[in-house]
């Protein structure tokens, strides 16, 4: 029965594709060069501005320069060998993992909770959906300034609130663990809109009859969420996870303006290490090796992303 239905579905899809094929053809009556002329500038710009840097980074990371502006000497993978023996670099890697992991845990928890709540909202409170986007409009630096002010040890409102609850005021930026927490909070604040919108979008695509059926069968709200809604929005949950990891992995502005990598390097993530190596120590070749390491992590995430979009046909949504 199922196989027959599958064959039938495949047949229909093939027929549909065949029917739409003539539609995909070129417009008639134009010169052959037209599409090339139209698309060349964009393709050229993207190759020069996005593809060239990657090639340059890989190539440059294989060289070493004795002094700034001096001639490069081919050293193979020596830069990478040095990096992975440098305790400071390894420390930065571990800080990056803590940071990304923290952003994921807090971001996905809030993303799901807010997404589910917004899904229930009707009528005049719908403006809350618009409000959710606001942090997306704020630059990373402005986010950091805002969090420096509200987390300030002396006058920050967060500490006032903690004191109101009977908890002593915290030194957010001189305690290593709290500084990491502050960075995670600011990063999540900035990127939560993406996760919330994706999850909300997934919930809205859901067939409400499934939930009604579950209610008839006596499933409570929690059970319905866990057993039905969450499995149905798995694609959106996975996608938000990957997007939040991207943002956290490559976040420079938020951390550099919030903690500057301190105190005692507690928030010195790979991005801060890259900044210092390239623009403070002026070690371009070593910095390019760090770029390549970050690009590799990024590529891993992209593999996950491609796998997901294949599996769930995200492009067709």
């Amino acid at each position: 029965m199922t196989t027959r239905r599958a064959t039938e579905r495949r047949r229909r899809r093939r027929a549909k594709r065949a029917a739409s094929r003539p539609d995909r053809g070129s417009l008639v009556g134009h010169s052959k060069a037209t599409p090339y002329v139209l698309s060349a500038p964009a393709i050229l710009a993207v190759s020069v501005l996005l593809a060239f840097p990657v090639v340059y980074a890989v190539w440059g990371s294989l060289y070493d320069t004795e002094f700034i502006g001096g001639p490069g000497r081919f050293v193979g993978f020596q830069q990478y060998v040095d990096l992975f023996q440098d305790p400071k670099f390894l420390w930065s890697m571990s800080r990056t993992f803590v940071f990304v992991f923290g952003v994921l845990i807090l971001g996905m928890t809030l993303g799901l909770v807010f997404g589910f709540a917004l899904h229930q909202v009707t009528g005049g409170m719908r403006f809350l959906r618009g409000v959710t986007i606001v942090p997306y409009l704020v630059s990373g630096i402005a986010t950091a300034v805002i969090f420096r002010l509200i987390l300030n040890q002396n006058f920050g409102q967060v500490n006032r609130f903690l004191e109101f609850l009977g908890i002593p005021a915290q030194a957010w930026f001189s305690d290593p663990n709290l500084a990491m927490l502050a960075s995670i909070l600011a990063q999540v604040w900035a990127d939560l809109p993406l996760a919330v919108l994706l999850i909300l979008g997934g919930l809205q695509l859901m067939d409400p009859q499934l939930l009604d059926a579950a209610e008839v069968d006596g499933a409570t709200g929690w059970k319905r969420a866990w057993r039905i809604s969450i499995p149905l929005i798995t694609p959106q949950i996975s996608l938000s996870t990957i997007l939040l990891s991207y943002q956290a992995l490559t976040s420079l502005g938020v951390i550099i303006a919030l903690t500057g990598g301190g105190p005692v390097d507690a928030t010195r993530t790979l991005t801060i290490a890259l900044y210092e190596t390239a623009f403070v120590d002026l070690e371009t070749n070593e910095a390019l090796a760090i770029v390549v390491v970050i690009l590799l992590f990024n590529a891993l995430l992209t593999l996950g992303y491609v796998g997901l979009s294949r599996r769930y046909n995200l492009d067709e949504q």
Binding site: S39, Y56, N298
Partner: peptide, 25 residues
């Protein structure tokens, strides 16, 4: 087919990775 590249490039290459190479350029 380059269109596919357009979908993946920004994922593969974050702005952060561009800093040093574009600075040199």
């Amino acid at each position: 087919h380059l269109l596919l590249l357009f979908t993946l490039l920004p994922r593969l290459i974050p702005g952060l990775g561009l800093m040093v190479p574009l600075y040199r350029l």
